[in-house]
């Protein structure tokens, strides 16, 4: 078995998943009842008529979390190749990674002190 045989199965899985959904959605369209009605298509808001625009504004703290995630996810991207190969490398590679993680934890401490991690 070569590498491409393995990925063929993954491709097949994508096709299976897509076909599964398509069949289910088409079947429910064929079997299930279907009646369009004005009052039914109003978006749900606890039984009342919806107030204001439906694409509401969201709080800025979500944005902060996303920025924080970007930082730390880039960190993990650097750690991934290191994690597999570091035993074949010279010993000091470990110390580099320790230094790298320490520097990034300083970033975490900074974000902590600025109160980014608090959900307010």
């Amino acid at each position: 078995m070569t590498l491409y045989d393995q990925w063929l199965a993954v491709l097949l899985a994508v096709i299976v998943g897509t076909v599964l959904v398509a069949v289910a959605l088409i079947a429910t369209r064929l079997i299930g009842p279907y009646a369009r009605e004005r009052a039914k298509s109003v978006s749900y808001e606890c039984g009342m008529l919806p107030v204001g625009r439906n694409w509401a504004q969201v709080h800025v703290r979500y944005y902060l979390i996303a920025i924080l995630f970007l930082l730390f996810d880039v960190e993990t991207v650097f750690i991934v190749p290191w994690a597999i190969t570091f035993t074949e490398m010279p010993e000091f590679v470990l110390y580099y990674m320790v230094a790298f993680i320490v520097i990034l934890s300083l970033g975490l401490v900074y974000a902590w002190k600025r109160g980014v991690l608090e959900w307010r």
Partner: peptide, 10 residues
């Protein structure tokens, strides 16, 4: 499967 799958307006 036999329930209506509805999409709201907008």
């Amino acid at each position: 499967l036999t329930k209506e799958s509805y999409t709201p307006r907008g």
